[in-house]
Design a binder for these strands. Structure first.
Lengths: 192, 192
DNA sequence: GGCAATCCATACTCTTCCGTATGGTCAACG
DNA sequence: CGTTGACCATACGGAAGAGTATGGATTGCC
C-alpha cells in the first residue's frame, strides 16, 4: 500500500520508476506518463529521473519490456500443466475471468496503439496468446481452420470485454451475473 | 477527395470543423485533435476556429454529438426491416463486417475512454447496440438470460475485433480468410 | 455603393512538459 | 574521518499548444 503513498524516504532505483510507470499506465493510460508527474508521485523531482533514464521513451520502453517479461507466464504457465486438454480451456477462461487485475495494463495498452512503441509489444503478446488458444482448440477436437477462427473469436471477445468492462464500465455486472456470463462463454465457445 | 486537400477557398462553418474533427479522430485518435493542426489542415488559422467554437472541448463535444446522431441508424435501421427474425442476425453480421469504414470513429473512440467527454457517448451507443442485439437473439429463439449473455459476448467480440484489426493490424486476414471468419462467427454465435 | 454581420489573420500571453546544466547531499568504504 | 560515487534538488531553455485581443477582409443585404 505504501509503495507510492509513503515513499519511506528510501532512495530509488530504475526498477522503482518502471513499476511506478506501469501502475500509472494501468490507472491513467500511456498518455499520462509524464516524468514530472511520476516524480511528484514518487516524492522526488526530475533530477532523479534523468539520472536513471536517458529519456522519457527509455522509461516507457523499459516498463513495457518488464511487463512483457514478467506478466506473461503467470496464467499460461499454469494452464499448460493441466494434463487433460479438454479441461484446459474452461479452466483458462475461469482463471482469466477472476484475475482481471493483471490485465489492467493490457487494457490500458490496448488504448495506446497509436504510440509506435507499444505496437510491437502488443503484437508479440497477442500473437503468442492467440497461438496458445489455437493449439488449445485443436487439442480440444477442432479442425485446424476451425480452431484458428475460434481462437480469433475468443481472443476478440476477451479484448472487447476488457475495453467495455474496465474503461467503459459496461456491462455492469455483479458477481453472480459475471459468473453466469463466463459459463455462457464456456458453453458457447468451447466444443463439447 | 478535395474536401480537405483543396479547401476551394470557401468560408467555413461549424459543421466543417466538426466533420474535419471526426475525420482526424478516425485517422489519428482523439489525442491528436488539436485546433492548430485542424486549422492547418483546413487551410485557415486559429482565428477562424475561435469564432465558431468557444473552446477545444466544445468542438469535441459537438463532433461526438454529431457522430452519435447521424452515424446510428445507418445499419440498425436497415436490419430492422428484415421480416424474418432468424435472418436478421446473420445479415447484421455480414453487413457490419463489410462496412467497416464507418466504424473507424468508433474504434478510435474506444481508445479514448480516458477522456471524460467520450465516456457517456460511448456508454449510450454501446447500450443501444447491446439492447438491439439482445432482442434479436430473443427473437432468434434464445431464452432471455441466454440472449443477454450472448449479446454481451457478440458485442465484445465485435469491439475486440475492431481493436485488434484496425489499430494493431492483427490478425492479418485477406478477403477470403475474413469471410471465412465471419461465417465461423455466424455458426458459432447464432443458434441454429 | 454602403453598412453591418460574419469570418479570418496576426500577434501576443500562459501553461505544461521535455530535456540540460550544475551543484548539493547522503551512504559506503578505506 | 575524509573521499568517492550514487542519488537528488534547483534553475534554466525551449517547444508545443490552448486561449485572447484586435484589426482586416469578405459576404449578404438594403
Amino acid at each position: 500500500m505504501n509503495v507510492s503513498s509513503k515513499p519511506e524516504r528510501t532512495r530509488l532505483s530504475a526498477e522503482d520508476w518502471e513499476l511506478a510507470a506501469l501502475q500509472l499506465i494501468a490507472e491513467h493510460g500511456v498518455g499520462a506518463l509524464a516524468v514530472e508527474a511520476l516524480a511528484r508521485q514518487l516524492g522526488v523531482t526530475k533530477g532523479s529521473f534523468y539520472w536513471h533514464f536517458r529519456t522519457r521513451e527509455a522509461l516507457l520502453h523499459a516498463a513495457l519490456e518488464r511487463w512483457e517479461q514478467y506478466g506473461e507466464r503467470e496464467v499460461l504457465g499454469q494452464i499448460e500443466q493441466i494434463s487433460d486438454p479438454r479441461k484446459r480451456l474452461p479452466e483458462l477462461f475461469r482463471r482469466v475471468a477472476h484475475e482481471l487485475q493483471p490485465h489492467r495494463v493490457y487494457a490500458a495498452l490496448l488504448k495506446a496503439l497509436d504510440h509506435p512503441q507499444v505496437v510491437p509489444v502488443m503484437a508479440r503478446v497477442s500473437q503468442r496468446r492467440m497461438e496458445f488458444l489455437t493449439t488449445a482448440y485443436r487439442e480440444a477436437g477442432l479442425a485446424p481452420p476451425q480452431a484458428l477462427n475460434r481462437a480469433r473469436l475468443t481472443y476478440a471477445a476477451y479484448v472487447g470485454f476488457l475495453q467495455l468492462n474496465f474503461t467503459l464500465g459496461l456491462p455492469r455486472l455483479n458477481h453472480e451475473e459475471f459468473d453466469a456470463y463466463v459459463e455462457h462463454m464456456i458453453t458457447t465457445l468451447i466444443p463439447a
